[in-house]
Simulated assay, not measured.
Amino acid sequence: MVKEAEPSVGRWRRRFDSSASAGVPAHVTVLVPFLDIDRIDAAVIDELRELFGEHSPFTVRFDSCRRFPDVLYLAPTPDQPFRALTEAVAARWPEAPPYGGQFTEVIPHLTVAHGQQAHVLDEAEAALTVLLPITADVASVSLFVSDGDRWHQRAEFPLHG
């Protein structure tokens, strides 16, 4: 979760990012999809705790808006710590490749809006640009699971380094 971004991006996400209305706060995804909910047992939680605990906390800045086709997002700098977290989880659970293996490169990002026409993305970008940069301290990774309707935080894993 990136709590520091919520005051700036929250209203845009609530309107134009379906994950926000499903209970997901502002965030940079480490890995989606992960394991089926019935596979996430105490052993998996313990492995995640150990895996993330090997990584150090870090500070990130979001100082620019960028786009994928029909997606407006904030780009984190540096993005390498997020990449390292994704690579570590994907290496441990190769059956759960990032984004189902759809993309050859995973680009860390904080989604603000998706599935909208260009003029909506333009409006959101213009409003957000004047609020940047946003600085955030990343000291943990949260695991969210879906009940089919909403997402719920199941666990939080501190980064110790």
Rank of each mutant, 00 (worst) to 15 (best):
S140N: 07
G101Y: 07
D137W: 05
F157M: 00
T29K: 08
I37G: 15
V44C: 09
I37V: 15
T29Q: 09
Q102Y: 10
R13F: 04
A118V: 05
P76H: 11
C65S: 11
Y73D: 08
A90Y: 08
S18L: 04
P97F: 08
I40S: 09
A42L: 04
R39A: 15
A124P: 09
E125M: 09
S146F: 01
H27V: 00
E95T: 06
H109R: 09
G148C: 07
E105P: 13
R39C: 14
A126M: 10
G53Y: 11
R13P: 14
Q102G: 11
R66H: 14
A96H: 06
R61S: 14
Q80W: 09
S64T: 13
D46K: 05
M1Q: 12
R83Q: 13
T135S: 13
G101V: 03
T86M: 10
E87K: 10
V89S: 04
V141W: 03
D41V: 01
E95Q: 15
A96N: 06
R92V: 02
K3D: 12
G148T: 09
H160E: 11
D36S: 11
L72Q: 01
R11G: 13
G100H: 03
L132K: 01
H152E: 07
H55A: 09
F16Q: 08
F144L: 06
I37L: 14
R13S: 05
L110R: 06
P98L: 03
D137P: 10
E6H: 08
V30C: 00
A136V: 00
Q116F: 07
V112I: 14
V9T: 07
H55F: 12
P133N: 07
I40T: 06
F68Y: 15
F82V: 02
V24Y: 09
P81I: 04
G115N: 08
A42I: 02
Q116L: 05
V106A: 10
A42G: 12
E105R: 15
T29F: 02
V9C: 05
V24L: 15
E6R: 04
R92K: 13
L51Y: 03
L31F: 08
P25F: 00
